[in-house]
Design a protein around this nucleic acid. Structure first.
Lengths: 133, 133
DNA sequence: GTACTTGCAAATACTTTGCAAGTTT
DNA sequence: AAACTTGCAAAGTATTTGCAAGTAC
């Protein structure tokens, strides 16, 4: 947790209890929606406002501390920024999991074919997780 | 265009001028947002309602005639369903382009690592297109 | 003490729904 | 003629903004 607090300080984002609660949830769940953040924090922290959640998410997105994940059929989810990784999504239970895949070849091919420079990739694979099968 | 009209008929979706206009735009632009569909059609067809655009998009999504593309930092875009492909997105001009990439290895790896079955993939690569560099 | 953040209420934006009139088949 | 679609207005949901009071540093 301390590394997160240090990050906030370094980026001149003041450390408030609301922010710590949001970051803890992202750390715990990996990927979480605004609706779920609000519901979970509100339970122990009844004065929390939805506007505060949105403002904080937007602030943390701007400083590149968290990342938005848009997934067809789901609300947007947010995750703490970490090394690049891909996502597996279970069509049965809705779970989203990180997975480390070797993407070098894919990206090299894409550069060759498209003549784009490439900064970032978003790779999502949909299927059924082992627990749901 | 006729293949699209046939598809609608086969799926018991009535062929209206509004629907034809939406499909023509998707065919022409490849990927287009609700906002842009509405603006472009409204120009020649002033009575068109936004609700009609939404209803039609939802009907076409349900019959799997079109697909939604969620892209971070962009409005959702819609495309006609065709063979699987990936997307290149230019961070400068915002353009979205199809690209055919070999994804077999990636998907095989993912199955092995995660033990998921995999039905579908969403691969987006962000960078700068040749025209913007 | 200054500057930023919070919570509330209001505003804006986005999407869906109900229904009467019109269209497609 | 039956069934579906359209456009409008209203409702519902999601997100942002303004501002006074409170908190972090």
């Amino acid at each position: 947790m301390n590394k997160y607090i240090d990050f906030l300080k370094t980026n001149n984002i003041k450390v408030t209890p609301q922010r710590i609660a949001i970051i803890e949830l992202m750390d715990q769940y990996g990927h979480i929606s605004v609706r779920d953040i609000f519901a979970k924090i509100k339970a122990n922290f009844p004065t929390l406002s939805l506007a505060t959640v949105y403002k904080n998410i937007n602030a943390m997105l701007e400083s590149n501390f968290i990342k938005e994940l848009k997934i067809v059929g789901h609300d947007s989810k947010y995750e703490l920024v970490k090394e690049d990784h891909s996502h597996m999504i279970c069509n049965e239970c809705g779970k989203v999991e990180d997975i480390d895949l070797e993407t070098k070849t894919l990206i090299t091919d894409a550069k060759k074919i498209s003549n784009y420079s490439i900064d970032e990739s978003n790779i999502q694979l949909f299927g059924i997780c082992p627990e749901c099968r």
